[in-house]
Design a protein around this nucleic acid. Sequence first.
DNA 1: GAATATTGATAGTAATACTATTATTTTTGC
DNA 2: GCAAAAATAATAGTATTACTATCAATATTC
Lengths: 228, 228
Amino acid sequence: MDVLMQSLKIGINEKLYIKDPESSSLGKKIVEESILLIDEIGFEHFTFKKLGARINSNESSIYRYFENKHKLLLYLASWYWGWMEYRMVFDTNGISDPVEKLSKAIEVLTQNVEEDNAFSHINEVVLNKIIINEYSKSYLVKEVNDEDKNGYFIVCKRLVSRLSEMIVAVDKTYAYPLSLASTILEGTLHQYFLKEHFPMLTNCNENVTPTHFFTDLIFRTLNLNVNG
Amino acid sequence: MDVLMQSLKIGINEKLYIKDPESSSLGKKIVEESILLIDEIGFEHFTFKKLGARINSNESSIYRYFENKHKLLLYLASWYWGWMEYRMVFDTNGISDPVEKLSKAIEVLTQNVEEDNAFSHINEVVLNKIIINEYSKSYLVKEVNDEDKNGYFIVCKRLVSRLSEMIVAVDKTYAYPLSLASTILEGTLHQYFLKEHFPMLTNCNENVTPTHFFTDLIFRTLNLNVNG
DNA sequence: GAATATTGATAGTAATACTATTATTTTTGC
DNA sequence: GCAAAAATAATAGTATTACTATCAATATTC
């Protein structure tokens, strides 16, 4: 799993941190506990001072790793999308049939996240929760164009692009592969949010998952049979 | 248009404001200029102090209308969704064919917003821009469950519900009408955002609109012909 | 064991997000 | 047209946030 780990590390833009949090135990603790604290109190209430108190460290020490909490969120999001991308590529790698390949990709991207023990200091289940609740806040900012120029969103963009290509491989005539791919990724986060907080606005529940909904949607849209 | 105006006023939960901004010229100015200022500097940089300076009024006076900027955003969002709901109901009212009715609803909900002169102090075009950029921030908060209990999201919920019913009217066997409806509403905002800031992640541009994409998606998903 | 890097502690600043009080202006009712 | 009431403005003040700067204490490494 070392190769995986490295490939994921590569995905994170160096401008997102001042000092690489993977390079020290304090850095890892900052990442590890920030995920838990953001989940507990929400991104708006989260501060470096509170995080410092929680990990018995100092506010000023955290500022030596991340410029501000916004950059930390972008870092966590890059890690998350890099991890998703890796799993998608890994899990679809050997599949030659384009329909089966797309189907598997959708499954990986929309299914409930389970813990991955390859990364000891990152709790993927909780990270997924904060991506559902907070990811939009990382790009819905006035500075988005400049930040995009800095490459802060490159991992997520590459994921959409890859998924779009898989859609094209299934149906070259379909006119909206990019829009469909971005709708699936964003829509998945949204359906999980609705399931948790607005169950009346979704058909997803304990039995019906976003994977069911989006797999069905893709197959109907691209005019395929469920069995490939 | 007075009836319309009233019906839209009714839609806004009274708990969202301390004093009804429609009841005075200062209140209207607060709403009018807050839309423009949030659009200009973004919700994070927007403060009541800055708004006060802009309208030659006082921070403390604005606090007499709205508890904080979060409630103001919820107010603006309720107004927006109330206005969309009204237009959707109005424009689909006489249509008896369910397919044509759904098609018209999608059109109203996904098309580019144009100014509505019935509401002099609200610039719908700019309001639509801030909904695209800021709406998610109104519900992606830790307090969402309590706020929902207070009825702050009722207008948007009713809209999803209505759209879902129109989907059911077209295809009773389709298993995910709520998820499809919520995906369309949320996805429309997202596609407009991508079109503006991440054109590589969407097929929408000057010629292809979110209306094209979502109309096509709905028709394929519900197995209909484009001509009804 | 000295030099260097890292972390911690403390202090300080400007801005934010308010609340409270009092003064001034506007509105309304008679 | 004037008094009473309501609305708005001005000012001040508090706690928190989002940092920056400085210096002391601790690890690390050469």
